[in-house]
């Protein structure tokens, strides 16, 4: 596939990663344009989770490069990538269970103002002003995500679906340019499923791009304009879901199996 680094928001070129003797990702190149929702599918063991790690920065590639927002971020740590606007959700929701719901959103605010002793002790007025702004935007976001009634509850008591919404709320607060969703529909109730879909769409409308790893092809069909198929650590094909359904190798590798 042809990728031109710098053109798209996220560009991954020929990354590979082995764990011990196992080649989890042999060769993967993909790109996500600004404001685009791109799907990443493939059978179990295709290397999707590793790609998520490689893009978010928790996994360091053995080779290949990752560009984000015009810079080479291959050697950046996850927190550095996050500060540039690359945020993610986790396969198993990672809310901070003993912080309240609104605190969960406030932690995600960009910048690290007030996170030092100096600020705590000597710059209180500035810190308080910043906190007030954070509080207000966090409340507005909770309102938007329908979580406002739970504002002061510890996040640990939320249901699976509510935790997903909270993760999306954090992404909104964090000012994501690109959000990496790792199986966003895993273990959530049908009612909240619609809510999650709606929120992703409205975030997209506001200009956030998504890379969505998902098993449920219905969700992929609804959200993604373009889909990347992986198998055995390699990118098999790229296209719309409709185009991919026509391709025999893709169907053999994945679609056929899951459509049975």
């Amino acid at each position: 596939m042809n990728v031109e680094p710098g053109n798209a928001l996220l560009t991954v070129t020929e990354v590979r990663k082995a764990f011990g003797g196992v080649q989890a990702v042999a060769d993967c190149s993909l790109s996500v344009g600004a404001g685009e929702v791109c799907g990443l599918i493939g059978p179990n063991g295709a290397g999707k989770s590793t790609v998520v790690g490689l893009v978010s920065g928790s996994v360091r590639p053995d080779g290949g490069r990752v560009w984000f927002d015009g810079v080479d971020v291959t050697t950046w740590r996850p927190n550095q990538r996050a500060r540039r606007g690359l945020l993610r959700t986790f396969q198993i929701s990672q809310a901070w269970p003993r912080l309240t719901v609104i605190e969960n959103v406030m932690v995600a605010a960009p910048g690290t103002d007030g996170e030092s002793l100096l600020a705590v002790l000597f710059r209180r007025p500035a810190m308080l002003r910043k906190e007030r702004e954070r509080w207000q935007s966090a409340e507005a976001i909770l309102e938007q995500f329908g979580l406002i009634q739970l504002r002061d509850s510890p996040a640990g008591i939320l249901s699976g679906g509510q935790k997903r919404l909270l993760e999306l709320a954090r992404i909104t607060m964090g000012g994501a340019k690109l959000a990496l969703l790792d199986e966003p529909m895993a273990g959530i109730s049908p009612a909240l499923r619609t809510a999650v879909l709606d929120q992703v769409r409205s975030l997209q409308a506001s200009g956030v791009a998504f890379l969505v790893v998902e098993h449920d092809l219905g969700v992929v069909a609804e959200l993604c304009s373009r889909v990347v198929v992986m198998a055995l650590g390699r990118v098999l094909s790229v296209g719309t879901l409709e185009e991919l359904r026509q391709r025999q190798d893709v169907v053999d590798a994945y679609l056929g199996v899951s459509n049975q």
Partner: peptide
């Protein structure tokens, strides 16, 4: 302060704290 909040976020999930900068 935001400092204490972030420290608690590190305690609860280091990965998630890292993923939010």
């Amino acid at each position: 302060s935001p400092y204490g909040r972030s420290l608690r976020a590190v305690r609860e999930s280091r990965d998630a704290a890292e993923a939010f900068g």
